[in-house]
Design a protein around this nucleic acid. Structure first.
Lengths: 337, 337
DNA sequence: TTGTATGCGTTATCAA
DNA sequence: TTGATAACGCATACAA
């Protein structure tokens, strides 16, 4: 076990191998371009010296890095885990690294983060949010860094978008409600400020209901704090009124289970007294009792495709035919509706 | 909006500011060392050119980076979200970046990841796992990279450890069970292979029960697959026997809610027919009906302390008096026991 | 307070 | 198949 020896460099490996540093560099990155004998010698020296290449130097010289950045609105949100896994697996397979950070739903913080990532020369950026400051957009475009947005199928992405239509998803849930006869429905969502996705989903739902002749009273369009407790509080509020909705649509993260648990505590039977639908897919939703109807988004696949597009772009491959990729969604009907 | 212009460098800023590149470098990193007039001139040029410093070049020159790496056994595991947030907040505040990856509980993958991080010259590494290959340990020690392990209060950390004693936690839960009169208890955990933490917790529980005279029959020490479904399956197995345990201790992630839901499906009342306790803290556990007794680990604080220790070490501050920091745990008793 | 010279460890380029 | 040389963009060390 050595301590902080001045780090072994390519020169050292070259000297002990009896070749030039350039040959070592080649041997490590493109073994086929080096003779067998030299290759073996170099590998044995690398092994002996425990040489680990300095990718910072490599990146500076080649003007390329293998780091992809991901900015999430909130690290607490478990639904992002699937997306992260999709990204992470693709990157690891291809020898890339992932930098993650949390913008707390603030365009200003996002801008600061992006600036840092540009400074780090990341080879691509994945953003979940689709609302950005003008500077953020400019920063990414002028640095010509590949960028994929994933939170909503925006019409005018900074660069590329891999997502689904939140508006269509909300509309689809409205149609499910109507088909089931749940025309007296309320919708509970996270605060829509700075959350374009959630707003779009809510609008899709509300306007589809209205167009079908079932306008929601304003008191039935509610915003709540994140988390199980936030949803519980909102549900309590809604059920305290004399005029109760027959169904609830909860937009965002863990809200639906929170609503279900609150109903259980209040002795309100789901779905007999009130139906509940969710807007995301976690394993929770299929395991609660009763299980919860929800909109399924292919989050893992979004991660995979976002990462693949970043890699393709950073490798200079021809751009895909369209810079917009709609991965769709589906509604899974369960016991709660 | 420009496109892929050859990137602006310090030289460009220097030229337009009428100073040397070195002065620009100073102005950006230590404004107080530059005269007011020059400083303002430089800032205005930086603004105009939209100059973003190249940290890769900076890092190569200064032999320092501002990147901290985190290796988790599984990104899917939601309980890590708190730790990540703790780390992330400290790092962002201090202008550092976070690289995350997933070792899938494999020491071999972990080794490969660490090698990559060493190549990236990260200024510190945080590992949740505490079981490592000899090479991993050697890699980190010989590169002299600050390292904090967080998964278990190991006696011989690679460098530093910020955690709690899983063994003591298991023991504490056994004592809670005994105090409540639940002497006929079963324990369900994730597979213990490569999961030293879970093994330690289970051992703590089982041996404390045994020492108190309540040995668990082997059939009541069960391993299950991750996730709600895994726990559900294990519970079904246990309850199918004629001789049922009076209480269940579930070690790992979301297992306890999975067990609770399965009991609900089977019509087994919790806690009347069977008590359930969990081994981690998520908001789920306090919101299910009934709410679940659990061991609380200060995960956010672990993240904060781990990050702070990495930063202190990477800045060359004096090492803390001890390389081991016990953050402890507590048992929160709820309706399920 | 500012500038000059030098080097960080690798890769691109061109020549042998 | 190999090597010499010159960047890459910045920061350290020293000098002015």
């Amino acid at each position: 076990m050595k301590v902080a020896q001045s780090r072994v460099s390519m020169k050292d490996v070259a000297r002990l191998s009896g070749v030039s540093a350039m040959t070592v560099s080649r041997a490590l990155r493109d073994p086929s371009s080096v003779s067998q004998a030299v290759l073996e010698k170099i590998h044995s020296v690398v092994e002996k010296l425990e040489y680990v290449p300095n990718r910072i130097a490599g990146s500076l010289s080649s003007k390329k890095t293998t780091v992809v950045a991901l900015v999430l609105p909130s690290l607490r949100n478990a639904m992002h885990a699937e997306t992260i896994m999709g990204i992470s697996e693709v990157l690891r397979r291809e020898g890339f690294q992932l930098m993650i950070s949390d913008s707390s739903n603030s365009p200003e913080i996002e801008e600061e983060l992006i600036r840092t990532f540009v400074a780090q020369q990341v080879c691509g950026v994945i953003l979940h949010n689709t609302v950005h400051s003008a500077r953020t957009v400019n920063l990414l475009r002028s640095a010509a860094i590949p960028c994929v947005e994933t939170g909503n199928l925006v019409a005018d992405p900074i660069d590329m978008v891999v997502s689904y239509s939140n508006h269509a998803a909300g509309k689809a849930m409205a149609e499910h409600f109507i088909a089931r006869g749940y025309t007296r429905a309320a919708v509970i969502s996270l605060p829509i400020r700075n959350r374009e996705r959630i707003k779009a989903c809510r609008t899709g739902f509300v306007s589809a209901m209205r167009r079908a002749g079932f306008a929601l009273p304003p008191a039935w369009v509610v915003q709540c704090d994140p988390g199980l407790q936030g949803a519980a509080l909102a549900v309590r509020g809604l059920l305290a009124e004399g005029d109760r909705p027959r169904a609830l649509f909860l937009i965002g993260d863990v809200l639906a289970p929170g609503a279900l648990f609150e109903c259980q505590r209040l002795g309100v039977d789901v779905p007999r007294d009130i139906a509940i639908a969710a807007s995301d897919n976690t394993e929770w939703l299929e395991n609660t009792v009763p299980s919860l109807t929800t909109i399924q988004y292919p989050r893992y696949r979004i991660g995979v495709r976002a990462a693949e597009r970043i890699l393709a772009a950073s490798r200079g491959h021809d751009p895909a035919p369209s810079n917009s990729e709609n991965v769709g969604f589906s509604i899974t009907v369960r016991q709660s509706t």
